[in-house]
Simulated assay, not measured.
Amino acid sequence: MPDELLQRAREGDREAFAALVEPHRAELQLHCYRMLGSLQDAEDAVQETLLSAWIGLAGFEGRSSVRTWLYRIATNRCLNVLRSSTRRPVAPVPLPVPPPEPYRSGEVLWLQPYPDLLLDGLPDQLPGPEARYESREAISLAFVTAVQLLPPNQRAVLLLRDVLGYRANETADLLGVTEAAVNSALSRARTAMDAAPPDRTRGPEDSELVERFVEAFTKQDVDALVALMTSDVWVRMPPLPFEYNGTEDVHRFFSALAAHRREIDTMVPVRANGQPAWGEYIRDPVTGGRHLIGVLVIGIAGDRIHELTHFETTVASYFGLPRTLVRGDR
């Protein structure tokens, strides 16, 4: 059947082409997201990948699978985006109050969350024998953030080798480089990943911890909130260039925020990157309606929270979160 579809697609049958490539769309989008850190950019990259595949179908000689051929196109498309000076700019999003001095300025300003609903559509495709990361680990925000700090070629090699499990010679063929170049880039990438803050979002989630977090967060009870965190907790707010590390700095940040912002009225649960997440809503004192102010994702390590990432509202549509909730909605 694949050979028949391929022949029909080469003859200009768009339906046959769609049947050939659509089974790979979800995993290609996830791969592009890992490469680019942005769901919006990943969607664009996949669209351009499939367009390039349709235009270049006559040149596909069948020496690899259609899946591998599509990964070659998608990876190189992402590399072009990363090397381009025209990547989508990040619009500044002001805080209601100037934050306290951050631990450091964040370097991954375009990071976006990835809805778990899109993960549900992935095919049951096991990674190759060379893979080093489990599927859950390779989608966490901590992993994706660390990957964004790698140079483009190291990023591509790490994802192809350690996440997808391609062999060194296969990766070299995908990228059009030598096997020695692949091995060198992989060694440097692994060293950088080992030096990144550890990703501890593994194991079962503590539902009681999540409930206590929601209660403390909605009431802006800073002491109770910080008591639920690890001593080395991280708070990030892309696209704002601020990061806070450790309970002392995080306490100062949430205390400053609580003094100038109304309490969160409603938190609508969703999931992102395999982690608990919520749409955050505050109540309008005049209309009684509730307005979305962001999407919050937490990382849990054992019985503590070790990471909070607040995203602005442009990602809401990916999670089916309305901008406003009318009175009575929950």
Score class of each variant (00 low, 15 high):
V182Y: 02
E205K: 15
D116F: 00
M193C: 01
L111P: 03
E170N: 08
N153F: 12
V214D: 02
D173Y: 10
T178Q: 06
R188G: 12
Y133T: 07
D124S: 15
V177R: 14
G203E: 05
L209K: 11
P204I: 10
V182A: 05
N153C: 03
P123L: 11
D223H: 13
V147M: 11
A156Y: 08
N153R: 12
R188C: 04
Y133Q: 07
Q112V: 11
P198K: 08
Q148V: 00
T191A: 15
D120V: 14
E208W: 06
I139N: 00
T178V: 12
L118R: 09
A181R: 13
G121C: 07
L175E: 01
D162F: 05
A189C: 02
V144R: 04
R202W: 03
E130K: 03
T171L: 05
L126S: 14
P127K: 12
K219N: 14
D206K: 03
M193P: 00
L118V: 03
Y114T: 06
L122Y: 09
A181Y: 00
V147R: 05
E170K: 14
R167C: 05
D199A: 11
T191G: 11
F143S: 04
S135A: 15
Q112K: 09
T201F: 11
V157S: 06
P198A: 13
V163S: 02
P198Q: 03
A131K: 01
S187K: 15
L209M: 10
A181T: 13
V144N: 03
L118T: 00
E134S: 13
E211M: 12
L158W: 05
D173G: 14
T201D: 15
L150N: 00
R190E: 07
A196C: 08
L141G: 03
D124W: 14
E134W: 06
S187G: 15
L119M: 11
P123W: 04
D199L: 13
S184H: 10
L149R: 13
T201L: 08
E211K: 15
R200S: 06
L158H: 07
T145I: 02
S207G: 06
L118S: 05
L149Q: 11
V163A: 01
P198T: 10
T171R: 02
N169R: 15
L119G: 01
E130A: 15
D162C: 14
P151E: 07
Q220S: 13
L141Y: 04
V157Y: 00
P204T: 10
L118C: 02
T145E: 14
